[in-house]
Structures are given as structure tokens and as C-alpha cells.
């Protein structure tokens, strides 16, 4: 077999290049570097409607990414969606009257959970449940409410006629 040493060298370089490329894809291109689940604690929140929230959607406080949704379940007895999230250990000062709301990023963007801290002295610990939640806005309900309101408004003004 001629040139075995060169061949082996080049093959080694190919494999190294391939692995390096995978690394680049993982680290620089994907969202891996932005959140690691190593040091995190768990919080739960219940919503009437989670809208388009997905597992691995963002958990945000003051606009900053502080965690990720780890699982979404449905409680068939209390008829609520149960969302479990992993929050970075560095942010463990959330008071226990924090409000968790589901907002949409941009006009048609992805949905995320926003944590709005309250004023309580007690803090949320690992495994605790957030009491105050605001569900996602569902577009159809909004439109329906709007139509209803404008219909009632029109009736009221008519009734005030001469």
C-alpha cells in the first residue's frame, strides 16, 4: 500500500474537519450556547390556554432569557394546562407572587413565557408553583369579543335615538 502515512494523515484530517464542522454547527449556529440545563431549578405554572407555546420555548424576565419550558401537560381533572419550566440557577430571586404570562414575540412570532416579579418577601424555590398566570391571547376569542362589543355599542347608541 503506497503512501500509507500520507493517507492516514489525510483521513485523520477529514475526520477532524468533520467533527469540527459538527461542533461549529452545534455551538455557533444553534441555540446550544444560549442555555444549558446543567444549573437550573424547576418551576410549574398552570394556564387555561397556552396558545402556541412549545417545549423548549423561552422563559423570559425583563426581556432577558432566563430559562426554557421543559414539559407541557394537560390536567384533565382541573382542566388546566400544566407547564414545567427550567430556570437558570443564577436567577433564583423570584418572589412567590410572580406572574407568569404567555406573550407573542413580534406580531406573528413564537410564544414565550414572561415572568413578572411581584413584591412578596418569600421567594419561589425549586419545584414550587407560580400562582398567578395569564393565559395566551387567542385571536378568535379576541375578534369575537370585539364584534360583540361593537354590536352592543351600536344597539346602545340606537336606543338613545330620538
Amino acid at each position: 500500500m503506497k503512501q500509507t502515512k500520507t493517507t492516514e494523515l489525510l483521513v485523520g484530517m477529514l475526520i477532524a474537519a468533520g467533527v469540527a464542522a459538527l461542533f461549529v454547527l452545534a455551538m455557533k449556529v444553534s441555540n446550544l450556547s444560549t442555555f444549558s440545563a446543567a444549573n437550573s431549578y424547576t418551576l410549574t405554572a398552570r394556564f387555561d390556554n397556552i396558545g402556541g407555546l412549545k417545549v423548549r420555548s423561552a422563559v423570559v424576565a425583563g426581556g432577558v432569557l432566563v430559562g426554557r419550558i421543559s414539559s407541557i401537560d394537560y390536567d384533565n381533572r382541573r382542566y388546566e394546562a400544566v407547564v414545567v419550566m427550567e430556570v437558570d440557577q443564577a436567577y433564583d430571586q423570584f418572589p412567590d407572587d410572580t406572574v407568569a404570562s404567555i406573550y407573542t414575540a413580534g406580531l406573528l412570532g413564537e410564544q414565550y413565557v414572561a415572568l413578572d416579579p411581584g413584591g412578596s418577601e418569600e421567594l419561589l424555590a425549586d419545584g414550587s408553583e407560580i400562582e398567578f398566570t395569564t393565559s395566551a391571547l387567542v385571536l378568535e376569542k379576541l375578534v369575537g369579543k370585539f364584534l360583540l362589543n361593537s354590536a352592543e355599542g351600536a344597539e346602545a347608541t340606537e336606543g338613545d335615538g330620538p
Partner: peptide
């Protein structure tokens, strides 16, 4: 890079690829 990093998911995109 920033937009890319927020939208490209390690499992859904890179891993599946």
C-alpha cells in the same frame, strides 16, 4: 449570528440534519 442562534435549534435542526 444572533438571529441564527435563537432560531436554529440543536435538536430539531442540527441533530435531524
Amino acid at each position: 449570528w444572533a438571529q441564527m442562534q435563537s432560531k436554529v435549534d440543536l435538536y430539531d435542526d442540527v441533530y435531524n440534519g
